[in-house]
Write a protein that binds this DNA or RNA. Structure first.
Lengths: 114, 114
DNA sequence: CAGGAATATTCCTGTAAAGGAATATTGATA
DNA sequence: TATCAATATTCCTTTACAGGAATATTCCTG
């Protein structure tokens, strides 16, 4: 019943809003990688890498493929598409209403008269 | 000398990655508003509204215009443009490299032989 | 200039989340 | 099956941050 509808999944944002996780995402641009490689390349300890990867997976940003011993993580397109739509939806707001502060000021003035 | 360069400002993400602040941003789509109106419409207490607005301003997402007693907050386009560029820059990564997990698996196999 | 409205700030408290260290789990291999 | 490599999980501690309540600040108006 909770989990308000916000046009974008907040987990995507909070997932990305942490430096190490952002670095992981940037690294995975180049292609899928194992936990070990991710940790190495970013200078993270393995457990922390695993934890961040879990957060990113739970938020839908990454997916895992188990390959024997290894877990190979890669980016999922969906959250990025969603983020793209969301950001795009601001274009109109930006162009239109933004700089008619004037209108709003006039409104305020009117309300003074009460 | 810190503040790593990440193609996107993390403050934009952490600014947005909080439900009340996201709600404020969504609300301000419709146009600029005073602190009091924002608090009213979102059912926030005035001090919390002010605090969130401060975070959003400091992160560059909002700007303020002082009008006598009131402070009128509105969205700034730049962070949204930046976010748009950043997200767009993933398109190639998505299309190209994503689903050649196969390549990576072969790589891994080769490394086994050492 | 006293009082009130709009907003910001401070202080306190609770909580979520990140890092460190240790350990558990799973799969491959000798 | 004992062992090793790769990864996940747990427990602990510290820290960042959000909300509540109170108070400060600023500006307007009688």
């Amino acid at each position: 019943m909770s989990a308000k509808n916000r046009g974008i999944n907040m987990m995507t944002l909070s997932g990305l809003a942490e430096p190490n996780r952002m670095d992981i995402v940037e690294l995975l641009r180049e292609g899928p990688l194992t936990v070990g490689e991710i940790a190495d390349r970013l200078g993270l300890r393995q457990p922390q890498a695993s934890k961040h990867l879990k957060v990113l997976s739970d938020s839908g940003i990454l997916e895992v493929k188990a390959e024997a011993n290894r877990r190979i993580y890669k980016l999922r397109p969906e959250p990025f598409q969603a983020l793209d739509s969301w950001v795009k939806s601001f274009r109109r707001a930006m162009e239109d209403r933004f700089d008619n502060l004037e209108d709003y000021l006039r409104e305020l003035q009117n309300k003074e008269k009460s």
